[in-house]
Design a protein around this nucleic acid. Structure first.
Length: 492
RNA sequence: GGUCGCGUGGCCGAGUGGCUAGGCAGAGGUCUGCAAAACCUUGUACAGCAGUUCGAAUCUGCUCGCGACCUCCA
């Protein structure tokens, strides 16, 4: 099916029709995690957002190469304290672990969380530490082109020089002159600032301090790559000098992505990315959730409920649903109330999906099912509006439930249609999944036995027994529901 | 100070000129031995002020409030 997908290109700040460079192939790069700590809720959002984009593009028939990096080279821990100590190194020293051991630990942890959230693995997941050579090659080329200079063993990108022949700041709407004017009233004291010709310059290669463990040889010094160069080098290697989509959180727009553009142009002479996409941040009490603000809740803590701000545990699918209920370009505020509402809504939706099989087809349908599919496509095509897609799926849910209570009727064909709607949009594209799916057959058998005993008790009007069975099962998280047609159960 | 964005009914959260978003919570009802679920009904919402328009939550201006980023916190 041919669908015209529009999404907001951060470069123009407008919705643009997406056309890949080389259809049906799509190259997509998303900034991945730095693996020096556990992933928190704020990290969950971009990976879920771009997972949905990956899934949707794939669903539309594109051949997507999705590259998401792992940053494991570490950078400065705390420049304000002036220690210059590598973050990963600091953790390692504290916990007496090798830096790479830490990186491995949190990479595994990250993967585990992504799996639980049903985030598909990317096509390629390159590590920064495995692409030092590519980064050095790129820096060399930028130096050759005259857009960088060596200073005391470090290499800096020359923003002023670059801005004379190229647009700088187009992505973030910044003007070099204003940056240089030093308008910032409280400019921070940054380590290595005196090595730069200009405060606007940024590092491509940093010479390592003696206590810096993570280091690699280079033509300029033993050191490590600058903050931005890894994404440029790895995207170029796997997606080419120009590729379709680059995604990430809005907090990366400047300086990270702006620098990526400058580096790539400085190296190859043209812009690396055609469509930039940025998801908004998750806030808590109106403030950005982030490591630096120390107001984050780890994904694992959400899953276990083990955090002082959490009133209960939330399942991975609840988290995913909560994120999908908002549009990706809006901020999303954390609260227990919001998560609890999402949990209930999700369970309601999932229950009606399960209930489809209980419906007996009718000769005629009393409602139109077909239009829902096109409405879902329209919502996805309009800047990935997952919130609207969900509202249509709730409409389908209402139809299913009304059919069960006899208010509506559906033909076998429409039942198939509605099932396919959920398969495609809820499961395949939005990536939701049933969490407590039908365990195993022995539970089915046991439940059938117990429920038949309860049914006999009810027929004998022995409600003490029937209620006891129901209440005790509920304590074990098996919820049973009586209806005219019999009793159904679900595990919560 | 600069750049960008936000302010929607009790809560979360869609929506960019006229048509019910949706979810959660609340109220009433149907069903039911009770309960739960489900279904039906129910909401003076669009920060404030002024303007454009036949018509604005949606466009313009101003005011107030909040947030993100501002060069090495991915």
């Amino acid at each position: 099916m041919e669908q015209a997908l529009y999404f907001t290109n951060s470069l123009s700040r407008e919705k643009e029709l997406f056309k890949p460079l080389n259809p049906p192939h799509v190259g997509m790069y998303v900034c991945g995690p730095t693996v020096y700590g556990p992933a928190h809720l704020g990290h969950g959002r971009p990976y879920i957002t771009f997972d949905v984009l990956f899934r949707y593009l794939t669903h539309l028939g594109y051949k997507v190469r999705y590259v998401r990096n792992i940053t494991d080279v570490g950078h400065l821990e705390d420049e304000v304290e002036g220690t210059g100590e590598d973050r990963i190194q600091k953790r390692a020293r504290l916990e007496k672990l090798e830096p790479m051991e830490i990186a491995k630990l949190f990479t595994d942890e990250f993967h585990r969380c992504m799996r639980l959230l049903n985030v598909l693995p990317p096509s390629i997941e390159p590590r920064a530490s495995g692409h030092i050579i590519e980064q050095i090659e790129m820096i060399k080329k930028i130096l050759d082109n005259g857009f960088a200079y060596v200073s005391n063993g470090s290499v800096y990108f020359d923003v002023i020089k670059y801005a004379q022949s190229h647009d700088y700041g187009t992505l973030s709407g910044r003007i070099v002159e204003e940056q240089l004017a030093g308008a910032g009233s409280e400019r921070r004291e940054l380590e290595g600032q005196d090595e730069k010709k200009n405060p606007a310059d940024f590092a491509l290669w940093k010479k390592a301090q003696p206590n810096h463990i993570m280091r690699w040889p280079s033509p300029w010094s033993e050191g490590f790559p600058g903050w931005h160069i890894e994404c440029s080098a790895m995207s170029r290697k796997y997606l080419g000098e120009t590729f379709d989509i680059h995604g990430g959180g809005m907090d990366l727009l400047f300086p990270h992505h702006e620098s990526e553009i400058a580096q790539s142009k400085g190296c190859c002479g043209h812009a690396p990315v055609r469509f930039w996409m940025h998801n908004n941040l998750i806030t808590i009490n109106g403030q950005k959730m982030g490591r630096s603000l120390n107001n984050f809740i780890n994904l694992d803590q959400l899953f276990t409920g083990n955090h002082p701000l959490l009133k209960q545990a939330y399942t991975p699918m609840t988290i995913r649903f909560y994120i999908l209920q908002a549009h990706y370009r809006s901020t999303l505020d954390f609260s227990n109330e919001a998560l609890q509402a999402a949990e209930k809504a999700m369970i309601k939706l999932m229950n009606s999906v399960k209930a489809i099989d209980r419906i007996k087809p009718s000769a005629q349908s009393t409602v139109q099912i077909k239009p829902l599919r096109q409405k879902c496509y329209e919502a996805m095509n309009d800047d990935l509006n997952t919130a609207i897609v969900l509202s249509h799926l709730f409409e389908a849910s209402r139809i299913i439930n009304s059919t069960i209570t006899g208010k509506e009727q559906l033909t076998a064909a429409d039942l198939t249609e509605i099932k396919k709607l959920y398969d495609d949009f809820l499961f395949t594209i939005l990536g939701m999944m049933q969490e407590n799916a039908a365990d195993d057959r022995s539970v089915d058998g046991l439940m059938n036995l117990i429920l038949s005993i309860r049914q006999e008790a009810k027929l004998k009007k022995d409600f003490a027994v029937s209620d006891r069975i129901r209440d005790e099962l509920l304590k074990l998280n098996f919820e049973i529901k009586d209806s005219k047609d019999g009793t159904s159960w679900s595990k919560n």
